Deep mutational scan, measured.
Amino acid sequence: MDETGKELVLALYDYQEKSPREVTMKKGDILTLLNSTNKDWWKVEVKITVNGKTYERQGFVPAAYVKKL
């Protein structure tokens, strides 16, 4: 869990989004888990830094590609 009590997951593999509802992740990324009720796709939040500014983006990743921490 992070400092706000949200559950975290670890990306076990790289994943490139294939639709606007998904998010890209790299092996080793730590993501915030938002919803894991679907056994195949989990909703996560990723933080992306571009030119020194951090953005948060929500989307789905394959559940088999992440592990709860």
Rank of each mutant, 00 (worst) to 15 (best):
M1V: 15
M1G: 15
M1F: 12
M1Q: 15
M1H: 14
D2V: 14
D2I: 14
E3Y: 04
E3R: 03
E3H: 10
E3L: 10
E3A: 15
E3W: 05
E3V: 13
E3I: 13
E3G: 15
E3Q: 15
T4R: 04
T4C: 12
G5W: 11
G5M: 15
G5Y: 12
G5P: 12
G5K: 13
G5I: 12
G5F: 12
K6Q: 11
K6F: 09
K6M: 11
K6P: 10
K6C: 09
K6H: 11
K6W: 08
E7K: 10
E7Q: 14
E7H: 12
E7Y: 13
L8S: 08
L8H: 08
L8D: 04
L8N: 05
L8T: 08
V9Q: 00
V9H: 02
V9C: 09
V9F: 04
V9R: 01
L10R: 09
L10W: 07
L10F: 09
L10V: 14
L10Y: 12
L10C: 07
L10M: 15
A11C: 09
L12Q: 05
L12S: 03
L12D: 01
L12N: 03
L12W: 03
L12T: 04
Y13S: 08
Y13H: 12
D14P: 05
D14E: 05
D14V: 02
D14S: 08
D14N: 08
D14A: 06
Y15R: 02
Y15W: 11
Y15E: 01
Y15G: 00
Y15A: 01
Y15D: 00
Y15Q: 00
Y15S: 01
Q16G: 06
Q16D: 14
Q16I: 15
E17L: 06
E17G: 13
E17H: 08
E17S: 14
E17F: 05
E17V: 05
E17Y: 05
E17T: 08
K18E: 10
K18W: 03
K18Q: 15
K18M: 12
K18H: 10
K18R: 13
S19L: 08
S19T: 14
S19K: 09
P20T: 08
P20G: 08
P20A: 12
P20V: 09
P20S: 12
P20I: 08
R21C: 12
R21T: 13
R21G: 14
R21H: 15
R21M: 13
R21D: 11
E22G: 13
E22V: 04
V23F: 08
V23H: 02
V23I: 15
V23M: 08
V23T: 05
V23D: 00
T24A: 07
T24P: 07
T24D: 04
M25E: 00
M25K: 00
M25I: 14
M25R: 00
K26F: 09
K26S: 10
K26N: 08
K26L: 07
K26P: 01
K27M: 07
K27L: 04
K27F: 04
K27V: 08
G28M: 02
G28S: 02
G28R: 02
D29E: 09
D29Y: 04
D29F: 02
D29P: 00
D29L: 03
D29G: 03
I30T: 06
I30F: 05
I30V: 09
L31W: 03
L31E: 00
L31H: 03
L31S: 03
L31A: 08
T32H: 08
T32G: 07
L33C: 06
L33F: 03
L33K: 01
L33Q: 00
L33Y: 01
L34R: 04
L34M: 07
L34K: 05
L34D: 01
L34N: 02
L34W: 04
L34T: 04
L34Y: 04
N35W: 06
N35V: 07
N35L: 07
N35G: 06
N35T: 05
S36W: 08
S36M: 10
S36K: 07
S36F: 06
T37P: 03
T37E: 13
T37I: 08
T37Q: 12
T37N: 14
N38V: 04
N38L: 11
K39F: 09
K39C: 08
K39N: 12
K39E: 11
K39L: 10
D40P: 02
D40R: 13
D40F: 15
D40Q: 15
D40I: 14
D40K: 14
D40T: 14
W41K: 02
W41M: 05
W41V: 03
W41G: 00
W41I: 03
W42N: 01
W42S: 02
W42E: 01
W42I: 04
W42A: 03
W42G: 01
W42T: 03
W42P: 01
K43P: 01
K43N: 06
K43E: 13
K43Y: 13
V44W: 00
V44E: 00
V44L: 03
E45F: 05
E45S: 13
E45H: 07
E45L: 11
V46R: 13
V46M: 09
K47W: 09
K47I: 10
K47N: 09
K47H: 12
K47P: 12
K47R: 12
K47L: 11
K47S: 15
I48S: 08
I48N: 07
I48K: 12
I48F: 12
I48W: 11
I48E: 10
T49H: 14
T49V: 15
V50F: 11
V50E: 12
V50T: 08
N51M: 13
N51I: 05
N51Y: 08
G52K: 07
G52H: 07
G52I: 03
G52C: 08
G52Y: 06
K53W: 11
K53D: 10
K53Y: 14
T54I: 10
T54Y: 11
T54E: 14
T54W: 09
T54K: 08
T54M: 13
Y55C: 10
E56C: 11
E56T: 12
E56I: 15
E56R: 15
E56A: 09
E56D: 12
E56P: 08
E56M: 15
R57I: 06
R57H: 07
R57Q: 07
R57W: 02
R57T: 06
R57C: 05
Q58L: 06
Q58M: 08
Q58C: 08
Q58T: 12
G59W: 01
G59D: 00
G59Q: 01
G59V: 03
G59T: 01
G59K: 02
F60G: 01
F60Q: 03
V61W: 00
V61N: 00
V61E: 00
V61K: 00
V61H: 00
V61A: 03
V61L: 02
V61D: 00
V61M: 01
P62K: 02
P62M: 02
P62V: 01
P62D: 02
P62N: 02
P62L: 03
A63G: 03
A63I: 04
A63W: 01
A63F: 02
A63C: 06
A63Y: 02
A64L: 15
A64S: 14
Y65K: 07
Y65I: 06
Y65A: 13
Y65M: 11
V66I: 08
V66S: 01
V66Y: 01
V66N: 00
V66W: 01
K67D: 07
K67Q: 14
K67N: 06
K68S: 09
K68M: 10
K68L: 15
K68A: 07
K68H: 10
K68G: 04
L69F: 11
L69I: 13
L69C: 09
